[in-house]
Write a protein that binds this DNA or RNA. Structure first.
Length: 277
DNA sequence: ACTAAAGCCTGGCTGC
DNA sequence: TGCAGCCAGGCTTTAG
């Protein structure tokens, strides 16, 4: 599923394909995709905007335009961009289209309707509700072992749930949170506040390294580098995961069978031996 | 102020 | 074979 590494890969592909292009015509087909922008306003705000930059903030993709607007996109579970000929028929579940000045069009498809878009003035992005409370980028200088320890101190919830909170730690989802905890040998049920400072430092190191390694490997996406179209399974990182979806298989450290449990209505994978405490 | 749970949504799977 | 019902999960909203 799209977590920070997956969104980073999509962002890079998009950047290579559409940076410098101009949006000739934008169309919001399903208004619910961008509830804060009525379809006519959505179209007008993007029309004739040249794409200056394609960036990322957490799991959001930011497409900055020359007309002082930014298109913000969250893929959630099944959102994806397709880059096709302008004359091609729209793909199934297409909820927005962006015709470009090179005979191509970008489609946004989303089978499950969880994805989100919004257009904002670039200068006002700081006040956009979805972005304003996000934690620092995990690769930034602000995300330090001390920062992580301080955030964890403030909650008695199971550490797995706290790590999924994008206002505390940015970029982890259900896959990488299980991976980071296993690598740091931390029990997912441990109250966040009881993680010692040295263990928080180790966890910090593993969060950064698991995200970096996933990006370097191309994440869990199966993506054609020439295309922005991606499949959300079959990517290289899937086979690199040490616990995720490995229930019953031996831990790579100690051969104990990996277990699955439910936390916050979703699966957590862990090694009952390596992650005893 | 915090936490827990419901809700959003649909394709694929399970079990009758 | 058909179909009801469950499951997956990022994030917001609501209830406690």
């Amino acid at each position: 599923m799209p977590e920070l590494p997956e969104v980073e890969i999509v962002t890079r592909h998009l950047r290579a394909l559409i940076a410098g292009r101009t949006i000739v015509k934008a169309q919001l087909i399903r208004p619910g995709l961008a509830p804060e922008n009525p379809p006519r306003q959505f179209a007008a705000a993007l029309r004739n905007g040249r794409i200056d930059e394609v960036g990322r903030r957490g799991k959001h993709i930011l497409i900055h335009l020359s007309n002082a607007r930014t298109l913000v996109t969250h893929l959630r579970m099944t959102g994806r961009f397709l880059y096709v000929d302008a004359n091609d028929q729209d793909a199934p579940h297409t909820h927005a289209t962006f015709r470009l000045d090179n005979g191509k069009k970008l489609l946004f498809t989303d089978q499950r309707h969880f994805g989100m878009m919004l257009v904002a003035r670039t200068a006002e992005l700081g006040q956009v509700r979805h972005l304003s409370k996000l934690a620092p980028e995990p690769f930034s200088d602000e995300f330090t072992p001390d920062y992580l320890h301080r955030k964890l101190q403030r909650s008695d919830s199971p550490i797995k749930l706290v790590l999924l909170d994008q206002t505390k730690v940015l970029g982890l989802g259900n896959i990488y949170v299980s991976e980071a905890l296993h690598r740091a040998r931390v029990n997912p049920k441990l109250p966040a506040s009881s993680l010692s400072k040295p263990r928080a430092a180790a966890l910090h190191r593993e969060i950064v390294s698991v995200l970096a390694e996933a990006i370097a490997a191309g994440s869990t996406l199966n993506a054609n580098p020439e295309e922005v179209d991606v499949s959300y399974t079959g990517g290289a990182y899937e086979s690199m995961a040490r616990v995720y979806e490995r229930e019953g298989l031996p831990c790579y450290n100690c051969a104990t069978p990996i277990r699955r449990m439910t936390q916050g209505a979703r699966s957590t994978y862990y090694c009952p031996h390596c992650q005893r405490r």
